[in-house]
């Protein structure tokens, strides 16, 4: 059976290798892919949208529908993880508390929140190992800077490589780092599950809302130029601001969905103990 699969793979590889004979040379400026629409994007990006980063202007303006539905796909993925995995009535698992001063661990049968507010005890996972103080300190030190960098990547996406998707992923990674280096409950204290759901819907709402606002003001869906009617700028600058608004929406959705996928997958939908 394995040889059959190997034969199949070799067969499709040889067909693909044969197809590369017709390909343009690597780095050829006159390859068909570079002649069709991309020169128009490169030449008109500045006068149409006043955005120097052509990737951003193509992403959010020229191909705005594509990006809108990609954002919806990500939102749907987060929703799918929630629907598939979330368990609301967890099995009766035991609770563990550790006395911080002496290191004695209390093993309480069943679920309890008895000692949650206590200053002498901390709740720990069932597979708890003594925490590495270097890891905790470094991640506590780094997370604010990571988040600041994420905001820079979102806000500076017009002038440098960056934008909503990248910034959102960095922002989500900072919260996932918090959940990994401490435990899942610490991450959930910072952003609650309900907040994550709200954020992932808010991002899509901002994107489609800006599109619908253009429709209300009398132009096509996602035609940001018409926003100059309500903003004190000319239509070209209004496009730039519209792109920025859309990128913020994308960043919020991507951040919330990345964190919630991590939460659900790492705790098998119970949101009590993570990795």
């Amino acid at each position: 059976m394995r040889y059959l699969y190997l034969l199949l793979v070799v067969l499709s590889a040889s067909v693909l290798f044969y197809a590369t004979l017709d390909f343009p040379q690597w780095g050829d400026p006159n390859s068909p892919a570079s002649l069709h629409v991309s020169p128009v994007y490169l030449q008109r990006s500045l006068e149409d949208t006043s955005v120097p980063n052509v990737v951003t202007s193509v992403l959010a303006d020229y191909r705005g529908y594509d990006t809108m539905f990609e954002t919806t796909v990500i939102f749907t993925a987060g929703l799918a993880c929630f629907v598939l995995l979330r368990v609301f009535a967890p099995k009766m698992k035991d609770t563990y508390y550790r006395h911080i001063q002496s290191g004695v661990v209390l093993h309480i049968k069943g679920q309890t929140t008895l000692l949650d507010g206590s200053r002498d005890f901390e709740r720990i996972d069932s597979r708890w190992v003594p925490a590495d103080i270097i890891l905790k300190t470094i991640s506590r030190f780094l997370i604010p800077f990571i988040q600041l960098f994420a905001l820079y990547v979102v806000a500076h996406g017009h002038h440098s490589p960056g934008g909503g998707f990248q910034g959102g992923v960095i922002l989500g990674a900072s919260i996932i780092l918090l959940s990994i280096s401490f435990d899942l409950r610490t991450g959930l204290e910072k952003i609650h599950e309900r907040g994550l759901g709200l954020f992932s819907a808010t991002g899509v709402f901002i994107y489609t809302g800006i599109g619908a606002l253009c429709l209300i003001l009398g132009k096509e869906f996602l035609n940001y130029g018409v926003l100059s009617k309500i903003l004190p700028v000319d239509p070209v600058m209004a496009r730039s601001l519209g792109i920025f608004g859309v990128e913020v929406g994308v960043a919020i959705t991507v951040m919330a969905v990345m964190v919630s996928i991590y939460n659900y997958v790492s705790s098998e939908g119970r949101l009590d103990e993570g990795l």
Binding site: A33, S34, V37, S38, Y41, L42, V54, V55, V58, L59, R63, D66, T67, E70, G163, F165, Q166
Partner: peptide
């Protein structure tokens, strides 16, 4: 060409 970058970014 910026177009493949946009497609792959998403």
């Amino acid at each position: 060409n910026p177009l493949p970058h946009v497609l792959m970014l998403t």
